[in-house]
Simulated assay, not measured.
Amino acid sequence: MDSFIAQLNALLTDLYHPVSLPGWMLATLLVLVAASLILMAMYVRHNHGLIKDANQELLMANRRLSLATSVAGVGIWEWEKETDTLLWNPVMFRLYGVQPGEPMSIERMRAWILPDDWQQFKSLLGNMESTDRHEITFAIIRESDGSLRYIHAACYWLYTGRKHRLLGTQMDITEEHAAREKVYREAYQDALTLLPNSRALKSQLRLGLEQTAPGRMQGLFFIDLDGFKKVNDTLGHDIGDLLLKGAAGRMRQIIRQQDRVYRLGGDEFVVWIADVPDQDIHVLETIANKLIDTLSKPFQFDEVRAQVSASIGIARYPQQSSDMESLLKAADEAMYLAKRGGKNAFAHYSTPASAASGSPAADAVPE
C-alpha cells in the first residue's frame, strides 16, 4: 500500500511538470487513478469485513465450545513442555477445587495427585515422541474440600516445529468409578470378611499360573477351621461371623505382600503363596506354621471367648499339578489328610505316582 502511494505521488509530480501531457491524456489518467483508488478501497473494505466476520465466527465457536465443555463437565488443559506452561479452562479449576485464575504448574498438580498414581502421570508427560491418543485414570485430593476424586484424562502430544504441547481433556468419573467398584465387590469380594471370593481366586490364580517363570513355583494352601461348627452351634452365628472376620484379618497379617487370602465360603479359605523358588519348600512350611499358630490362638469378643484351629493342605504348581483346577483339588485332598492326621497341622500333597510306589499320599505334620 505504501509503495502504491509513493508511485502515485511520483506520477502526480510528473503530471504537474512544466512539460506536461495533453489534456485528454491527463483526464484519462486521473480517471484511471480514481478508479484504482475506488477499487482498492473496496478490496480493503471487503477483506476487512471477511476478517471481521472470521474473527466473529471464531469467537462464537470458542463460546460454544466453552459452554459445551462447561455443561458436560469437561476440563481442557494444555501443557507446553519447553516453557513448563500449563493452561486450564474454567472447568479444570472446578475439578480440582481451585480458585479460577490461579497460576498453574505441573508441580502444583503433583501435590493433588495421589503418590501411587503420580508415576503413570509422570510417564505421560515424558512420552512426547508418541502421537497416539493416551488415556489414564488417576485419583486426586481436591483442594477445596479434601475429597477423593477419580479423574479420567485423554490427551495427545503435538509438535509445532519448535515446541512440544500436550493437549487434552479431563473428566471427574468418581461416581462411575464407585459404581464399577460396587459391581466388582458384589462379583469378586466376600461380603462378610471383605476378602476376595472364589470367583476372584479363579480369575487371578489362572493368570498367575500362566506367568510362572522357569525355576519358580506357586504354592496353594487349602485351609479349614477345625471346631468352627461347634462355635456356631454353641455361641451363635453372630460370634461365628466375628470369628471368620478375625481369622481373615490374622491371615492377612501373616502372609507376604505378594501373597493373597481368599474365602471360598463357610469356614474354608485359600492362601496363594506366589512366586517361590521351586526348591524352597521350607518357605511354604514356614508360612503354614505361622498361620496354624495365629489361628489357634483364642478370639475374644467382649465377654465371649472362642477358639478354633486350622488344618492346611499344601499343593505346588507346576510340580504337582498342570492347571488351576488340579492345583485346587490337590490342595483340598491334602487338607483332608491333615485333618485325618489329627488336625491343627499341615500336610503336603503327593502325586498318585508317589503313593503307588509305596510312599504315603501326604505327610501330616502335627503342630
Rank of each mutant, 00 (worst) to 15 (best):
M1C: 10
D2S: 08
F4R: 10
A6G: 11
N9A: 12
L15Y: 03
L15A: 10
H17S: 11
G23M: 08
M25H: 09
T28C: 14
L29F: 05
L30Q: 10
A34F: 09
L39Q: 06
M40W: 02
A41H: 05
M42L: 10
N47L: 12
H48P: 00
G49E: 13
E57D: 13
L59H: 15
N62V: 03
R64P: 01
A68I: 13
S70L: 05
S70T: 14
S70W: 02
G73Q: 14
I76F: 07
W79L: 10
E82A: 10
D84G: 05
N89Y: 05
V91H: 03
F93R: 04
F93W: 11
R94M: 07
L95Y: 03
L95R: 01
L95C: 06
L95H: 07
Y96A: 01
Y96E: 04
G97K: 04
G97L: 06
Q99I: 11
P100D: 08
G101I: 08
G101P: 07
G101T: 07
P103Y: 10
M109F: 12
A111V: 09
P115E: 07
D117F: 04
W118S: 02
F121M: 06
N127E: 15
T131A: 12
E135W: 06
E135N: 12
I140T: 02
S147F: 07
I151F: 04
H152E: 10
H152V: 11
A154Y: 07
W157Q: 02
K163C: 07
H164I: 05
L167K: 06
G168M: 05
M171A: 05
I173H: 03
E176T: 13
A178G: 09
E181H: 12
V183F: 08
E186D: 14
Y188N: 14
A191K: 06
T193A: 03
S198Q: 09
R199T: 13
L205H: 02
R206Q: 14
G208R: 13
L209A: 09
Q211L: 12
G215L: 14
G215C: 08
Q218N: 11
D226T: 04
D226V: 02
G227M: 05
N232P: 09
D238P: 01
D241Q: 11
G246A: 13
G249T: 09
M251S: 04
R252F: 03
Q253C: 13
R256Q: 12
Q258I: 05
D259H: 11
R260M: 11
V261S: 01
G266R: 04
F269C: 00
V271A: 09
W272E: 00
V276A: 02
D278L: 05
E285T: 08
N289P: 00
D293L: 15
P298G: 15
Q300K: 12
F301A: 11
F301N: 12
F301P: 04
D302M: 09
D302H: 11
V304E: 06
V304C: 10
A306W: 00
G313V: 03
I314G: 00
P318W: 03
Q319H: 07
M324F: 01
A331E: 01
K343G: 02
N344C: 13
N344E: 08
F346Q: 00
F346I: 03
Y349W: 13
T351H: 06
P352F: 07
A356Y: 14
S357P: 03
D363F: 10
A364C: 15
E367S: 08
